[in-house]
Amino acid sequence: MTPDIDTPAHREAIPASDNPLGMEGIEFIEYATRQPHALGQALEAMGFRLVARHRSREVLLYRQGAMNLVVNAHPEDARVSATEGGAPVISAIALRVDDAGRAHARCLALGAWDVASHARAMELHIPAIHGPGGSRFYFVDRWREFSIYDVDFLPVADADPAPPALAGMRYFGVVQYVGPGRVDDWHTYYERLLGFTPVPAHERFGILPKGRLMRSPGGAFLWQLVEPLGWDDDLDMPQESLQRIGIGVPDVADAVRQLGARGVRFVDSAALHPEDRGALTETVLGGVAFELVLQPRSPS
């Protein structure tokens, strides 16, 4: 935490805390796309299974293990992806917090932009703020006692509602591309609004250890801010975006082997061996890639 947030604010009391939102990890990650079937195939190759469909919109829920992944092809939302040359984009991250309303109000008080809700009758209104590019951060607090998906989604017939994770995969983090000279800006955004803390430079994970690494409060996942090489100051500011999902696995070589058998191709996969720290899938559909990161299974 930075001390400034903890100074008494004049409009509301913002309590000092290492985890001001009571964050406990990622509830789901959402892609927006106009190609839900093509993306669905790519996700199935990665081990995700279609488990439910939204009641009123063209939105699909994929799952494996503890990872929920939403494919949003609702025309209003999928329009976001039209600006990216038609490639699917990571359009939202839903964060598990103590109290969604309080988390949302705190962020707005600190200068976050509110996202208008489009919930229909009897659907959940999930509060959200604007993130990088056209993305959003949702705040979800109903994940202990029941599932938000039971309200808005209908299960797919005959589908296992809780398919196991392939190769022990689970969400590890998100890589965000930032514009030239923008690492400090976004660092401040995650630090002040959401309570992320920088990871010391000597702690590095995966195969692409560049950029600024931050840890979510509670430590459930990491956030990597990367200023891509080759962006020219003379050109217009490139689109900032949530670029890819990092997936933690206990054994990189085993995961690469299992995924390879399902048709997933890796960048430079020939060079991998068991002690490797990570692997990067080839980009499909013009922008979808996953990064595997070595993450020993926790004792629990």
């Binding site: 004049h10 976050a112 993130g131 955004y189």
Partner: peptide, 23 residues
């Protein structure tokens, strides 16, 4: 408007946060 520098700073911090995602 208040003349308390901490309040003025908190509001400008908020303004900068609003500007931040827009670059």
């Amino acid at each position: 408007a208040s003349d308390d520098p901490e309040i003025l700073a908190a509001d400008l911090r908020k303004l900068a946060m609003l500007a931040l995602p827009l670059g």
